[in-house]
Each structure stands twice: as C-alpha cells, then as structure tokens.
Design a protein around this nucleic acid. Structure first.
Lengths: 110, 110
DNA sequence: CGCTTATATAATCATATAATCATATAGTCA
DNA sequence: TGACTATATGATTATATGATTATATAAGCG
C-alpha cells in the first residue's frame, strides 16, 4: 500500500488537522487520553481548565474524529480514536530537539 | 535511544510546531521544497501567492528552523531542514483517510 | 553611480478562534 | 417529581495571525 503524501488536493485537510493539534489544551487532553478513556470531569481536573472549555475542545476533537465518545450513565467517556497521533507528537518532538540542537550549535560554533 | 514523547513540559513547543504546519500556504511551500531548494520567486510562482506573503511565511518557517536559507548572488535559496516533516504529513494523511472511512462507514452502516 | 531585480519588513486590516460566562439539556437518585 | 450531577452549547469578548499594501534593503549590471 503506497503511503499517502501531501498533494495540492489534500493541503487544506492536512493543514486543518495540524491546526487542530496546534492548541496546547487539546494536546494536553490527548496526552491524558493516552492513558485510557476519561470522562469530561476527569479531563477538567487533569488539565486545570474549565468544564465548558474542555467540552468545547472535545467537540472539536470529536468532529474531526480524533477522539471517540461513549455515553455511559451520566458521564461521557472519551478516548483516542487513532493512536497514530502520538506517533506525530513523537516526530515533532524529534524535530524540535534537532532544531534546538542546531540552534545551540549555531550559537556556540559559529 | 528513547523516543521523546509528549510531556506537560513540551506541550507548548509541540503545539506551536503543529500550528506552524497548520497553514495551507506553508504546507504548499514545504511541498514545493520537497523537490529541492527553491528561490522565493520560484515559490511565489509555484504557490500563486504574493512575494511579501511568501517571504513572511518563509521567515516563520526559518525562525522555527523548518527550512534553511542560503543567499547566493541576488537570490535567497530555501530548502527543507528536517525531512521528517514529510513523515508527519504522511501520517496525517493516513489519519484523515481512516477518519473519512469511519465517517463513511458510520453513514452507510450505522 | 543610477537602474533593475530579488527579497524583506513594517503597518494595516480582516478574520478565525480560544476563553469565558451564562444557560440548557440530560441522566441519576431520593 | 424535584434536587443534584455531568455535559453541552450559545453569546460575547479578546487575541492571534494571515493577507495586503507600501516601502525598504541589497545585490547585480550598464
């Protein structure tokens, strides 16, 4: 199966998805969900944000199918729908590390 | 070597980097640079945007070390500094494909 | 030195969106 | 049913930032 790459056609969708991930609180939510499903309340506590704000970001994540939602009893349980997002974060972290190293080298070395 | 993952400490940097990638024109520029170094003028033509706009986005990309810049003669040659970004785009494309497939399945099947 | 070309940058404007606040909906349990 | 808990959502505000315009800087070339 060929890997799907960036094309003029999918530029917007790809950019949109990156933008979804470009909000610290949303990453924080995803990072928390990495440990398993969580209720909104649990995420509010974990992130230190407000309930409406967390709910809103969950809606966004849900709309783009980055998370799944399951209602049980009184609570809504959210979980990551595609674990590949964490691979993304790993790569970005690697990117940043290399960029910082370059910067350091440029500062020290010339 | 352990992969660097998302942590409470690096959340902001990671989010910032995602946001940098969340702009279609910037992705378009990177996509063009995937074929090798390009001058600003070449990127202006390839993207159909204006010169100041392309220059500004290149500045942003440069500031975050997503691209390198080399001045030769009258022109500035830009190139991708860390090819791992394309891996990111591939993964995101895969994400989107799966999300769309889910959506389709949800529509048809349940 | 002007003239042209290539690139960068400052100022402004327009827009998207994150946070907040208030409120609505929905489920549980007495 | 009424009270409580959990979650969602609409309206508003504040802010960040992308696009545009005009202009500045810099390099080549006659």
């Amino acid at each position: 199966m060929p890997k799907t790459a960036l094309t003029p056609q999918n530029l917007d969708s790809v950019a949109t998805r990156f933008r979804i991930l470009g909000v610290p609180l949303r990453l924080q939510i995803l990072n928390e969900l990495a440990n398993g499903e969580r209720t909104v309340t649990a995420l509010v506590e974990a992130t230190g944000s407000t309930q409406p704000n967390v709910s809103k970001h969950l809606s966004t994540l849900l709309a783009h199918r980055l998370v799944k939602r399951e209602k049980r009893g009184n609570s809504a349980y959210y979980s990551v729908s595609d674990p590949a997002v964490f691979k993304l974060c790993e790569i970005v972290c690697g990117n940043i590390e290399r960029a910082l190293e370059e910067e350091r080298a440029a500062f020290s070395g010339g």
